[in-house]
């Protein structure tokens, strides 16, 4: 952004420098309001609260400080959307994930600028976007394959036909890697929704901008409302609602804090949530994408039927 500061050109994204609004009667830049993403819409937090992000160009942005109630609304939306999303064909889900990748690719410039504004180098920003796009395509490709690879026909010792296949666990609440600007969020959303789950994700508190812009990508990708919901806010405030909600089936918590891990795993026991706690990792590494991340949020269903007349 610093580079554009001297020009009068409005920036590609909304984090326009207020310095552009010179007194010389030039056009006033239109700033973007960063809102949260619930049920396919972009409301402000119901709490009316905000927190402020300072960008590397010394500008600042007000971001929604989401509340427990925002989370509850998101869970309702995610639950409502889940069965239909899971009921779509795997091929259809695959195409929608691919479409998300397409939409992200076409917005490279905007994302690059936003990542740079949030402190990434230009080269790192470009790499992060490229990997995010490729990661979406990677999981898009798995939608109609993971069940083939990880299901089984079971040779039982009686005259029954017996098979096991994978079904989505349901509604997943995720706290994304707080140290990642975009890739950590994308890398957790994609495998969760690939099998037919719906998700409520909390973006990185310090890097929320690209998460909200990613919501705009999702919103233009034929992804049904409620399948992905993205909140911005504080981990310390939302960790408990995320892990105690009785209509959430699984939680993913990325944290390096042992106390957060204990809290998450303790709360998960309330309704036997599947819980995965993971430390902050380098999401650019290929080893951090694999189909087992899809399996983490699936249930094995075994069906029996007699063989006979």
């Amino acid at each position: 952004m610093a580079a554009t500061k001297t020009t009068t050109k409005p920036s590609a994204n909304g984090t326009a420098s207020k310095a552009e609004t010179t007194a010389k009667n030039e056009r006033l830049a239109v700033l973007k309001t960063y809102k949260i993403y619930i049920n396919g819409q972009f409301p402000r937090t119901e709490s009316g609260r905000y927190y402020t992000i300072k960008l590397s160009n010394k500008e600042q942005v007000n971001v929604c400080l989401s509340s427990r109630k925002d989370f509850r609304n998101s869970v309702s939306a995610a639950r409502e959307a889940q069965e239909k999303w899971a009921g779509k064909t795997a091929y259809n889900r695959s195409q929608i994930l691919y479409r998300i990748a397409e939409m992200l690719e076409t917005r490279r410039a905007q994302f690059t600028e936003e990542l740079v504004n949030q402190g990434a180098s230009a080269a790192a920003a470009k790499e992060e976007i490229s990997i995010a796009v490729d990661r979406l395509i990677y999981y898009a490709g798995w939608c109609d394959k993971f069940n083939q690879v990880f299901s089984s026909v079971n040779p039982v010792s009686s005259s029954h036909f017996n098979f096991s296949s994978l079904e989505p666990t349901g509604v997943v609440a995720a706290i994304a890697d707080q140290n990642s600007r975009l890739l950590g969020l994308v890398s957790i959303i994609a495998p969760v929704i690939a099998s037919g789950n719906t998700i409520i994700a909390l973006a990185s508190t310090q890097f929320p901008l690209s998460a909200i812009t990613f919501a705009e990508v999702l919103n233009t990708s034929d992804l049904p409302a409620g399948v992905v919901n993205i909140l911005t806010g504080e981990v310390s405030e939302l960790l408990v609602p995320f892990t105690t909600h009785m209509d959430v089936n699984a939680v993913y918590i990325n944290t390096n804090n042992q106390q957060d891990k204990v809290t998450a795993e303790t709360n998960a026991a309330l309704n036997v949530k599947r819980v995965k706690v993971e430390a902050s990792i380098d999401w650019t590494l290929p080893k951090n994408e694999d189909p087992y991340r899809i399996l983490d949020y699936t249930e094995v269903k075994t069906t029996w039927h007699p063989i006979g007349i």
Partner: peptide, 28 residues
């Protein structure tokens, strides 16, 4: 449900994964 029996019930086999959704458990 983790195990669904169609036109049979309460059949078990070592080759057949068993375990529940939701509050019926974790893992198979």
């Amino acid at each position: 449900a983790g195990v669904v029996w169609a036109n049979t019930y309460n059949k078990f086999d070592p080759a057949s994964p068993f375990g529940g959704y939701k509050e019926s458990g974790i893992g198979r």
